[in-house]
């Protein structure tokens, strides 16, 4: 019984995710091809803009950029879409008693599928240009998993808060702009004066993005203490969002 309940739960989460993915490409000529076309196009535009207009002294800057911008795209797009998701799906919440977390989680997972596709493209590209390095390339796996976990819990947190406090969505939009520059995405920590590096300990995304950079360019990993501090604060955020969601989700409908 417990086993079948779990399979039903997973089926449900996956069906919701599938809905997100399918609905996005319905009535398009290229259909699922957009999953690949979009990130490729994005890569060229981003690469063009940053390599011509912004100069940052990093070897293989093009590759370096992709390795930071692809995960950032995943994180920021997911967070902006998931935050108002409970409010948008109010009629669904009023209909039945189902696991409510499926609403933001389906957005997280559908974007993660897109992210993984673009990551695979990046790896293929690396392989073709013979610039793939082992074992550093394997860092992509833990980096992606940590990013998925963090994105899921922050999305659940902001979506939960948005039900009662509708300012959260605007706050998230502003926060994402700041967060973009406060995270080593288009630069890396080696370029930061050492007295400022301490600030990056407050950003749980710092180490994850450094991992993404390293896995592609095999530069050196930052201080292990940064990892420990980041993991610890991530853990706190995950715990907090879970507890808050658990307390609030049963009465979401009262605010919608």
């Amino acid at each position: 019984m417990a086993g079948s309940r779990l399979t039903n739960y997973l089926h449900f989460i996956w069906a919701m995710t599938e809905k997100e993915i399918k609905a996005r490409y319905k009535h398009t000529v290229f259909g699922f091809l957009w999953v690949i076309l979009n990130p490729v196009f994005q890569m060229f535009v981003i690469g063009f803009v940053f390599s011509f207009f912004v100069y940052i002294p990093v070897a293989n800057y093009y590759l370096f950029l992709f390795s930071g911008l692809l995960p950032w795209q995943f994180f920021s797009l997911t967070l902006s879409k998931a935050t108002p998701s409970f409010v948008y799906e109010r009629s669904l919440l009023q209909k039945a008693n189902f696991p409510r977390e499926a609403i933001p989680l389906s957005i997280v997972l559908s974007n993660f599928v897109h992210f993984v596709v673009s990551l695979v493209l990046l790896i293929v590209f690396l392989g073709l240009s013979k610039s793939i390095v082992f074992p550093q390339a394997l860092y992509l796996l833990p980096a992606s998993i940590l990013l998925l976990l963090f994105t899921a819990s922050v999305s659940l947190l902001t979506a939960t808060l948005q039900v009662k406090y509708r300012d959260i969505n605007f706050f998230v939009q502003s926060l994402l702009i700041l967060w973009f520059y406060a995270t080593p995405i288009v630069y890396n920590l080696a370029l930061i004066p050492s007295r400022f590096v301490i600030l990056y300990y407050f950003n749980p995304l710092s180490y994850i993005f450094e991992l993404f950079h390293v896995s592609v360019l095999s530069t050196s990993l930052p201080d292990i203490r940064l990892f420990l501090v980041n993991i610890f604060s991530m853990g706190l955020i995950i715990l907090f969002s879970y507890l808050l969601y658990k307390r609030e989700h049963r009465t979401f409908v009262d605010w919608l």
């Binding site: 039903n8 089926h11 449900f12 069906a15 919701m16 809905k19 399918k22 609905a23 319905k26 009535h27 009629s91 669904l92 009023q94 209909k95 039945a96 008693n97 189902f98």
Partner: peptide, 21 residues
Amino acid sequence: AGFHPDLTGEENILLNGLLIG
């Protein structure tokens, strides 16, 4: 409630059915 406008009837039946348990 619980139907997605862009999905087909069949796809919506699966989604809606799972939704109500």
